[in-house]
Design a protein around this nucleic acid. Structure first.
Length: 216
DNA sequence: TGTCCGATTGGT
DNA sequence: CCAATCGGACAG
């Protein structure tokens, strides 16, 4: 809460950040735990933030849906093999950036893809970044590519330490009455048996969630 | 060097 | 359902 009073957003509250131990837990635990937490980007243009309402776990090197499948680092995936609690940012379809939190035990390149946020701060800056001054709030960060557009996340933040001052997470929990649901991950038709792993978490029924908003 | 393709999105 | 669009992965 306190972090989001406008005065404090100009100088983000360091104490609000997750401790390193948060990212040391199993990746599926981290993935479920970030639901309800906030992602904050303090950029030169201003600060934007959103409550995480949808995330997916990628459990390389065995997960056929993960970029780290096979276990060999490449130029693109280098960050996934690096320190936990840092950003793995990649470009998809030559058009959109996607943001992940690097996780996993030692030697396991894993990550949590942030798929959707409920906008919390800097909505007009978000709208300005996509050139849509009238875009409804719930659509601004609905989808991994869109949230990077509106949050101003690009390759510039590749490998960024999420405990730093630019891009960071602030703990939060789902609100009363909100339920965390899980499902298969989206758009990984090539992942064979890993297609069916229920490694997507989301706040049931939340309007900012991309794809299916309910189980079943 | 050349070819193939995607952890998406927006429009038809 | 379909195309846009381009950096990276990998084969040769």
């Amino acid at each position: 809460m306190s972090v989001f009073h406008s005065r404090e957003c100009a100088a983000p509250d360091l104490a609000g950040r997750f401790p390193p131990e948060f990212y040391a837990r199993p990746t599926l635990t981290v993935c479920r735990s970030v639901i309800g937490s906030y992602l904050v980007h303090a950029s030169e243009k201003g600060t934007t933030a959103g409550r995480i309402v949808e995330a997916e776990a990628y459990l390389g090197p065995h997960d056929k849906g993960a970029h780290s499948f096979g276990g060999r680092p490449t130029e693109r995936t280098r960050a996934m093999f690096g320190d936990k609690g840092h950003a793995y940012v990649f470009l998809i379809y030559g058009a959109y950036w996607c943001f992940n939190i690097v996780c996993g035990p030692a030697g396991k390149p894993q990550a949590v893809l942030i798929r959707a946020l409920e906008p919390a701060l800097g909505l007009d800056l978000m709208r300005a970044r996509i050139g849509k001054p009238d875009a409804p709030a719930e659509s601004l960060c609905r989808g991994p590519g869109k949230l990077c557009l509106t949050m101003g996340i690009t390759k510039e933040l590749y490998g960024e330490d999420l405990r730093g001052d630019r891009l960071f997470l602030v703990p939060g929990r789902p609100r009363r009455g909100e339920t965390i649901a899980r499902s298969v991950r989206l758009n990984i038709d090539y992942a064979e048996e890993y297609i069916h792993k229920p490694w997507r978490f989301f706040i049931q029924g939340n309007r900012s969630v991309s794809g299916p908003r309910r189980m079943g």
